[in-house]
Amino acid sequence: MIPTEFDYAAPESLDDALWLLGEGGEETRLLAGGHSLIPLMKLRVVVPTKLVDLRKVPGLDGMQREDGSWRIGAMTVHSELEHHPDLGLLSRAASTIADPQVRHCGTIGGSLAHGDPASDLPAVLLAAGGSVSAQGSGGPRTIEAADLFKDYMTTSVAPDEVITAVHVPALDGYGYGYQKFNRRAEDWAMVAVCALVYARDGVCEDVRVGLTHMASTPLRATAVEEALRGQPLYAGSIAEAAERAADATNPPGDLNATPAYKRHLARVLCQRALTEAAGLS
């Protein structure tokens, strides 16, 4: 299986990339690590006329901590996240993406722009309350994670915009848990749940829960968060809150998981992720 024909450019500045993107029309696509895009092109599900490769564009790499938040260049690959000592939940989630070879190529910016609800990073960004910086013909703007994911593989990044950086609050002092369920280690998540918990004196002062593959977009499990916030953290309160993990979800079913099974998994995994995040496991 091979892609259809397309033209290719590897601009050396962001301005050039934006110009190429704007000039190329709707079927021009950005190429970052290519590990979401190229498989779809090989299957001829996506048929771009032109690819604009961001590989040579400066300023899209690197990870710095700024004002309690991590700025992560959009071209940062998953393996860099995985092996970073201070990224906590993000690092853990990145370590479960596909396999080592894919993690050497796939990028955080590409993954978020792709907006696949079965991918690991979107729900993490959502739960952490992060954002992305995007640059387009209209200049730079910040898109909050809550506004980023619009529908199945659809984001609010405009066709002529480039994600340049990802901002993830450091959330110092938060415990985290990540529970990904798949049949085989290299598979996409059937369901995954990430949890961030800030506790003081055994009481849950803050909690954020993200759900992967429980709808056409990643979701926050707000019902769980509301049920647990302000409550003492123990097995019973976590179990009670986790019961609400599938509220307001609309999980897509497939051969190996009906919506009912996925709702069940969300509750089980939520309990486990919260338990882990609360340090009770």
Partner: peptide, 26 residues
């Protein structure tokens, strides 16, 4: 066809990648 099997694994700039999912131009 789907970056699943790894038979095409090579090293690119010193790390393992699946060469069926990388364009030569990259």
């Amino acid at each position: 066809d789907t970056s699943s099997c790894g038979a095409c694994t090579i090293h690119l700039d010193g790390v393992a990648v699946k060469s069926c999912t990388v364009l030569a131009v990259q």
